[in-house]
Design a protein around this nucleic acid. Structure first.
Length: 879
RNA sequence: GGGCGCAUGGCUCAGCUGGUUAGAGCGCCACACUCACAUUGUGGAGAUCGUAGGUCCGAAUCCUACUGCGCCCACCA
C-alpha cells in the first residue's frame, strides 16, 4: 500500500481503465425486458470535428447521466456516432485539395466523393478517440455515421414518405445563397450578424426630365443593376404625383416605373425604395405582386454576371465600390450616411450570404410543426431549464418552409429522378426506378443536389436503430430518455427531431431536453479559433486528467447558465482528485482487511456506534439523498459540489482527523472503508477513472465499479440529532482553535481549557468525547467545571450551551480581550434586536406560520441566554 | 422591432417553490511540513445581495420601472 505515490497521476491510470472497460464490453447495452431502458443518442459531432470545451461539457453531462442510470440498474445505452456534415466536410476536403492545386471540379463528382471517404477513413475518428479520452461510456460497437448505407436508406425513405404526402415541393424563390460555398442554405444556416455599413442615397433621373430625380436609399448599391422599379407608399404626398412615371436606371439605362405599394415605409430613407426582385426577399414579393421583371445580376460565386453591363466579372463588393465611383462622377450619388445593419452569414464559412433567386426544393413545415407543438405543450417533452420551451414554441409557431437542397457533392443525393426523354415532372423513389412511369424510358437521371445535412440528422434518434426496420432495439430504446445539447441547435436539430419522430415514428424522440450553457472564456467571449482564446480540453486532460476536467466543468455549470472558463478553473478538479487519492491512500495504509466484510450491507447496529461514526454515516446518507435528488433534476453542479464538500470538509477534515489516533478500532475500520467505497461509487459518474483506480485497490466484489449498483440510500442512518450534537463538539473545537490564534499560541504549544456545560446532555456529550476534543484542539487538559465562574487568568467564549475558558500563561492584553467580547456582545445584541422587533409585530405573530414564530422565539431565548453569559464573562473580566 | 438571460465579498459563481446570524471555489492575511495530502492543514479579514418603487407580518429570493452587460430571433430598403 505504501507504493502509492503521494500525488495522483491520472495519465497512468486513465488509459488503462478505459481499455479495461472497453475490452470487457462494459459499455454495451442490449434490449432487456427485465430492466428499464435508459437511452441517450449523442449529438453526433462532425466527422471533421476536434474536441472543444463545448463537446467536453456536453459529453460529460451525458456520461454522468448514462453512468448514473447504469448504476441505478437501468439498461443504459449511449448511442454514439458522427455526422457527415455536408458543407463543413466538403470545405475541409476542398482545402486539402487546394494544397495540391486542385479544385473539386478537376476530379469530378465521383472521384471527389472518393476523396472525402478517404479523408474520413484517415481523420474521421479523431473526435471519437478524444471522446474516449474524456471517459465517454458510449456503446461504441453501435457507432453510426449519417452516410452509412442503412442510414442513407432511412434518409431516402423519409424523403419519399414526405413526397408522397405532398410535403416536398420545388420553387423558384429568394433563398440564402453562400457565394463561397456556392450552395443554398436554410434560414437557420444563415444567422444574422450586425454589420456597420452605409446608407447610400442614389439619384435616379426621370425619363422625360433628366434634370429631376427620385432619390432612393440603399445599403447594397451593387444590386441597383438589377432594379426593375422604384416603389413609394401610396399615401406619401411627396411622391403621389410621380406614381406611374418612368425613370432611367443609371449606368444601365433601363427604363423603370415608379410603383406604389403600402409595404414601403414613408419614414425610412427618402421614402422611395429601389426594387430588386431577384436580390431581396421584400423586393421579390413586390416583384411578384406588380409583375416586375426579375433581373439576376450575379453569378453563383458572387461575381457580377452578363446582366451587369460593364461590371461583369467584378466581385460584388468590388462592383459596389466601382459603381459608387461611377455614380459619384455622374453626380448621381447624393450622400452617404453610416448605417448599422445586419446581414445573414454562412454558418460554415462566415461569408455574407446573398439573397438569391434560385430554384430549390422545400419541405412544407406547418403540418409537421402542429404535432410538435402539441407534444411540448402537453408536457410530453420537457425542456430543462424550462425557459427554452418558449423559444422552441415561438420558432415552431412561426415556422417557415425548409430549403433542403444543397448544391454540393458530399451528402445524400435527393432521391428524385427525371426522365430525359419525356421530361415530365420529377418523381421520388428510394431505389433507382427501372423506367419512367410515363413513357417507360430507361433514360433516367438523378437530381444533382444533395440534401441539407440536418435532413439526415433529424432522423438520428431512430435511424441509428436501423429504422425503417422495426428492430427490437428500436422498440426497446425509443423514445430515448433525454437529449443533451446546446441552445444554438434547438432549431437546427432538436425541433426537427421532434417533428421527424412524430411524423415517421408517431412518437416523440425523447422525453427530456437538457440545454446546457455555452462555454466562454473568462471575458465572456465565445471560444473560437479566430479569437485565439481556446482552452483545449486535451491539454487539460494531459495536464490535470480527464476526471479533473470533468469535475471542474460540472462544478461550475449551473443549470443552463453559460460557463466562463480560465485554465486555473481546472485546478479545483485536479486538487479534488488528489484529495481523494490521498485520503484513500491513508485509508489503504491503515486498513486491516481482516476486519472488512465486503458483502455486509448493514454492518453494525447503529446504537453500538459512537457519535463520530454515527455522525459521518448520517452525513453521508444525507448527502447521498441530496445528490440523487440533484441528479434526477439535472442539477449536476449541485450534485458535484455536495459530494465535494462532504468528502473534503466532513470526511477528511473532521472524520479522518478524529479517528486517526484510534484508526485500528474495528468500528472505525469498517465505517471508513464503507464510506470510502460508497463515496467512490457515488462520485464515479463524475470522476470515472480515479474512482475505478481506487475501488480496484480496495477490498471489493465485482469486475468494475462502473457496473456496481449506486449506493443504496440507508435513510435509517440519517440522524439529525446526532448531526446536531456532533456540531456542538466541532464548534467547541473551532472556537478553541480560534482563541488560540487570538492569543498567538503556537499550534505545538498545548493549552489548558475549562468548560462549563449548561445542560446535562451537553455535559455528558463533552465528557464522553473528552479525548477527541483534547486531541483536535491540542489541549493539555480539559477541566469540566461545576459552576459558571470564570477561573482566574483565562480567556472566555460562549458556544451555544457551553462556556469556554482558556488558561492564559502570558501577559493578557485585557483591553484586547474586552474588545473581543464586546464585539461579540454587539453581534448578539443586534441579532436579538431583530428577533425582538419581529416578535413585537402583532401582524407577524398573527400571520406568519407557527413554526416561524416559534423559531424566532426559540432563537431569541437561546441567544439571550448566551448574551447574558457573555455579559457576565465580561464583568468578571473587569474585576 | 420582439424575446431571453445575467447583475450577490477582489475575481468566478451557488442560493430550488419568500422566514439562513447570506454560502462556495479562487485570491488575500496570519500561522503550521514528525504524523495521507503544501495540488495540504488551522484560523482570519472581506457583501447593507445593480438602482428606484411596490406586494407582504417578512424580500437577495415575488412584481414594476430604470441602468449596465450578454445572447437569440426578425424580409429596418
Amino acid at each position: 500500500m505504501n507504493d502509492l505515490p503521494t500525488r495522483y497521476n491520472p495519465g497512468e491510470t486513465e488509459d488503462k481503465w478505459y481499455k479495461f472497460w472497453e475490452e470487457n464490453s462494459l459499455f454495451s447495452a442490449k434490449a432487456n425486458p427485465a430492466k428499464k431502458p435508459f437511452s441517450i443518442v449523442i449529438p453526433p459531432p462532425n466527422v471533421t470535428g476536434i474536441l472543444h470545451m463545448g463537446h467536453a461539457l456536453n459529453n460529460t453531462i451525458q456520461d454522468i447521466l448514462i453512468r448514473y442510470h447504469r448504476m441505478k440498474g437501468e439498461e443504459a445505452l449511449w448511442m454514439p456516432g458522427t455526422d457527415h456534415a455536408g458543407i463543413a466536410t466538403q470545405n475541409v476536403v476542398e482545402k486539402a485539395l487546394a494544397k495540391e492545386g486542385l479544385k473539386r471540379q478537376d476530379l469530378g463528382r465521383e472521384k471527389f466523393i472518393e476523396r472525402v471517404w478517404q479523408w474520413r477513413e484517415d481523420y474521421g475518428s479523431t473526435i471519437i478517440r478524444q471522446l474516449k479520452k474524456l471517459g465517454a461510456s458510449c456503446d461504441w460497437q453501435r457507432t453510426r455515421f449519417t452516410m452509412d448505407e442503412e442510414y442513407s436508406r432511412a434518409v431516402k425513405e423519409a424523403f419519399v414518405a414526405l413526397w408522397k404526402k405532398g410535403l416536398i415541393y420545388q420553387d423558384n424563390k429568394i433563398i440564402n445563397w453562400c457565394p463561397r460555398c456556392q450552395t443554398a442554405l436554410s434560414d437557420e444556416e444563415a444567422p444574422h450578424r450586425d454589420l456597420q455599413g452605409n446608407l447610400y442615397y442614389l439619384k435616379y433621373p426621370f425619363k422625360d426630365n433628366p434634370d429631376e430625380f427620385v432619390v432612393v436609399a440603399t445599403t447594397r448599391p451593387e444590386t441597383m443593376l438589377g432594379d426593375t422599379a422604384v416603389a413609394v407608399n401610396p399615401k406619401d404626398k411627396r411622391y403621389k404625383k410621380f406614381t406611374g412615371k418612368t425613370l432611367i436606371l443609371p449606368l444601365i439605362d433601363r427604363e423603370i416605373k415608379i410603383i406604389a405599394d403600402s409595404m414601403v415605409d414613408k419614414k425610412f430613407g427618402t421614402g422611395a425604395v429601389k426594387v430588386t426582385p431577384a436580390h431581396d426577399p421584400n423586393d421579390y414579393l413586390l416583384g411578384k405582386k406588380h409583375r416586375l421583371e426579375f433581373v439576376n445580376v450575379m453569378y453563383p460565386d458572387g461575381r457580377m454576371n452578363e446582366n451587369a453591363g460593364d461590371y461583369k466579372d467584378m466581385d460584388r463588393f468590388e462592383a459596389r465600390e466601382v459603381i459608387l465611383e461611377d455614380l459619384k462622377e455622374k453626380g448621381l450619388l447624393e450622400k452617404v450616411e453610416p448605417h448599422a445593419l445586419s446581414a445573414g452569414h454562412c454558418y460554415r464559412c462566415h461569408t455574407v450570404v446573398e439573397p438569391y433567386l434560385s430554384r430549390q426544393w422545400f419541405v412544407k413545415m406547418k403540418p409537421l410543426a402542429r404535432p410538435a407543438i402539441e407534444a411540448v405543450k402537453k408536457g410530453k417533452i420537457k425542456f430543462h431549464p424550462q425557459r427554452w420551451t418558449k423559444v422552441y414554441l415561438n420558432w415552431m409557431e412561426n415556422i417557415q418552409d425548409w430549403c433542403i437542397s444543397r448544391q454540393i457533392w458530399w451528402g445524400h443525393r435527393l432521391p428524385l429522378w427525371y426522365c430525359l426523354d419525356c421530361r415530365k415532372e420529377a418523381f421520388a423513389s428510394v431505389e433507382k426506378p427501372a423506367s419512367c412511369r410515363v413513357c417507360k424510358s430507361t433514360n433516367l437521371k438523378q437530381d444533382e443536389d444533395v440534401l441539407d445535412t440536418w435532413f439526415s440528422s433529424w432522423l438520428w434518434p431512430f435511424a441509428t436503430f436501423y429504422w425503417p426496420q422495426e428492430s427490437p432495439d428500436l422498440k426497446y430504446f425509443y423514445p430515448t430518455s433525454v437529449l443533451v445539447t446546446a441552445p444554438e441547435i434547438i432549431f437546427f436539430w432538436v425541433a426537427r427531431m421532434v417533428m421527424a419522430g412524430l411524423e415517421f415514428r408517431q412518437d416523440i424522440p425523447f422525453k427530456d431536453v437538457y440545454i446546457h450553457g455555452t462555454v466562454r472564456d473568462i471575458e465572456g467571449k465565445k471560444m473560437s479559433k479566430s479569437l485565439g482564446n481556446i482552452i483545449d480540453p486535451l491539454d487539460i486532460i494531459n495536464e490535470y486528467g480527464a476526471d479533473a476536467l470533468r469535475f471542474s466543468l460540472i462544478s461550475i455549470t449551473a443549470q443552463g447558465q453559460d460557463v466562463f472558463l480560465s485554465k486555473e478553473r481546472f485546478e479545483q478538479g485536479r486538487n479534488f482528485a488528489n484529495k481523494i487519492w490521498n485520503a484513500s491512500r491513508f485509508i489503504l495504509m491503515n486498513l486491516e482487511p481482516a476486519d472488512i466484510k465486503v458483502d455486509l450491507c448493514v454492518f453494525f447496529k447503529k446504537e453500538d456506534l459512537d457519535i463520530i461514526n454515527r455522525w459521518i454515516l448520517s452525513r453521508f446518507y444525507s448527502v447521498l439523498k441530496e445528490v440523487y435528488k440533484y441528479l434526477e433534476s439535472y442539477k449536476f453542479n449541485e450534485a458535484a459540489n455536495t459530494l465535494y464538500g462532504f468528502f473534503w470538509h466532513e470526511f477528511c477534515d473532521w472524520y479522518l482527523e478524529i479517528i486517526k489516533p484510534e484508526i485500528k478500532n474495528k468500528h472505525h475500520q469498517v465505517v471508513m472503508y464503507k464510506i470510502l467505497e460508497k463515496f467512490l461509487r457515488a462520485i464515479h459518474p463524475f470522476m470515472p477513472f480515479i474512482s475505478e483506480e481506487i475501488w480496484q485497490r480496495l477490498p471489493h466484489q465485482g469486475q468494475s465499479i462502473m457496473v456496481q449498483p449506486r449506493p443504496h440510500l440507508q435513510e435509517d442512518l440519517i440522524d439529525k440529532k446526532t448531526e446536531k450534537e456532533a456540531g456542538h463538539i466541532f464548534s467547541l473545537i473551532s472556537e478553541i482553535r480560534n482563541l488560540r490564534g487570538v492569543i498567538g499560541f503556537k499550534p505545538e504549544q498545548k493549552l489548558k481549557a475549562a468548560i462549563y456545560p449548561h445542560t446535562k446532555e451537553i455535559k455528558k456529550l463533552l465528557g464522553d468525547n473528552e479525548s477527541l476534543i483534547m486531541n483536535l484542539a491540542r489541549l493539555e487538559s480539559l477541566e469540566i467545571l461545576d459552576s459558571a465562574r470564570r477561573p482566574a487568568g483565562t480567556l472566555s467564549a460562549v458556544i451555544r450551551d457551553i462556556d469556554l475558558y482558556l488558561y492564559f500563561t502570558g501577559i493578557l492584553d485585557a483591553a484586547l480581550e474586552q474588545a473581543r467580547i464586546r464585539d461579540k456582545i454587539g453581534e448578539l445584541t443586534r441579532f436579538i434586536a431583530s428577533k425582538e422587533a419581529k416578535l413585537k409585530n402583532a401582524d407577524f405573530i398573527k400571520r406568519a406560520p407557527r413554526e416561524v414564530v416559534d423559531k424566532a422565539k426559540e432563537d431569541r431565548e437561546k441567544i439571550s441566554g448566551e448574551l447574558k453569559r457573555l455579559e457576565k464573562m465580561y464583568d468578571e473580566l473587569l474585576q
